Simulated assay, not measured.
Amino acid sequence: MSKNGWKLVWNDEFKGNEIDPSKWEYDLGGHGFGNNESQYYTNRPENAYIDNGKLIIKAMKEEYGGKPYTSAKLRTRGKADWTYGRFEVRAKLPEGKGIWPAIWMMPTDLEVYGGWPSCGEIDIMELVGHEPNKVYGTIHMGNPHFYTGGNYTLREGKFSDDFHIFTLEWTPSEMRWYVDDILYSTKNDWFTRKNKDAEKEPFPAPFNRPFYLQLNLAVGGDWPGYPDETTVFPQTFEIDYVRVYQPEDGKY
């Protein structure tokens, strides 16, 4: 499969009966994940499963592991990673106060540039549930922490109404974010350093080495806030496919 000069190198169409363990691992726990989140991520089929060709990540209101909600986080760490490429995910998003779905990437080796945030983080899509018609694309880096990005708002309706395609094109000199092939953000200036007193690493650090993909549905946290009486549970993050492309000619 090719697309505008990009060739498909990795994908999951979720056509089987179970989540493919050769492609995904679960990130487990209820430690807040650096954002004071309220969910406990499990590997139970109640929280992540395949249904009718879709990966379903479900957040539920239930006591588990000392947390008031359960959900799931899947990642390709240790199974697949990439330096540069086109990353495309077709998904239907949940909504509601305190609901926080994300498609994002972290470096396989966190310590090359000194841990987070200097190691870098690429957020392909995030939505905070009280803004159900807006998504964000962001990169994190630096020391002290610095981030930059953009956002896209639907002209009508919400991201929970239907499936949309969320895309990142990552090259050595630029990152481009799209919704349904509409370009909404471009970044070509970033930096990092291991500590506040260090010299800046040469561009394009920290985004010049392998990153793996993550899909998760958080509940609560510093950015989205926390569920209230208006939040309906369960909420589902439905992923139709994940596709990764590289240039057909092998050049960027």
Rank of each mutant, 00 (worst) to 15 (best):
T167S: 15
L168F: 14
F203S: 11
S185Q: 14
W190F: 05
E169D: 07
W170Q: 01
N195R: 12
V179H: 02
F146S: 09
K200V: 10
L168N: 00
N188V: 01
P144W: 09
F166I: 05
F159W: 00
K158A: 11
A198H: 04
E199Y: 13
G157A: 08
G142N: 08
I182A: 04
T153E: 14
K196R: 15
A198D: 14
G150E: 08
F146R: 11
H145K: 04
W170K: 00
F159A: 01
D197A: 13
W170N: 00
M141P: 02
D181H: 11
K196H: 11
Y184R: 07
A198F: 09
G142V: 04
F159K: 05
S185F: 14
K194V: 13
G149L: 00
S185H: 10
M175S: 01
E169I: 14
K196F: 09
G142T: 08
E169S: 02
P204H: 09
S185D: 06
H164R: 06
W190H: 08
E199F: 08
W190N: 01
F163N: 03
M175D: 01
F166Q: 01
Y152W: 15
H164K: 06
S185T: 09
L183W: 05
P202M: 06
I165V: 15
K194E: 05
N151A: 02
W190Q: 02
D161T: 03
D161E: 11
N195M: 13
M175G: 01
D197I: 05
F159D: 02
A198Q: 06
V179K: 03
M141T: 13
E199N: 13
F166G: 00
G150C: 09
N143F: 06
L168D: 00
F203K: 04
K194I: 08
I165L: 14
S160E: 06
N143L: 06
K158N: 09
F163R: 06
A198Y: 09
S160V: 02
R193Y: 04
D197M: 11
K158I: 10
K158D: 05
H164W: 07
K196T: 15
D162F: 12
G150N: 10
D180S: 01
I165K: 12
D161A: 06
V179N: 07
A198N: 02
I165F: 08
K187H: 14
Y178A: 00
K200H: 12
M141W: 12
Y147C: 07
F163E: 11
K200G: 11
Y184D: 09
N188M: 03
F203M: 06
F166D: 07
P172K: 09
G157D: 08
A205Q: 07
T171P: 04
P172M: 06
Y147D: 10
G157E: 03
I182Q: 12
D189M: 07
F163Q: 00
W190L: 01
I165H: 10
D180T: 13
N195A: 13
E201H: 12
K196L: 10
E199S: 06
R176C: 11
S160A: 10
Y152G: 02
S185C: 15
A205L: 08
E169M: 05
R176T: 04
A198W: 07
A198I: 05
I165N: 08
G149M: 07
R176Q: 09
E156Q: 12
L183T: 00
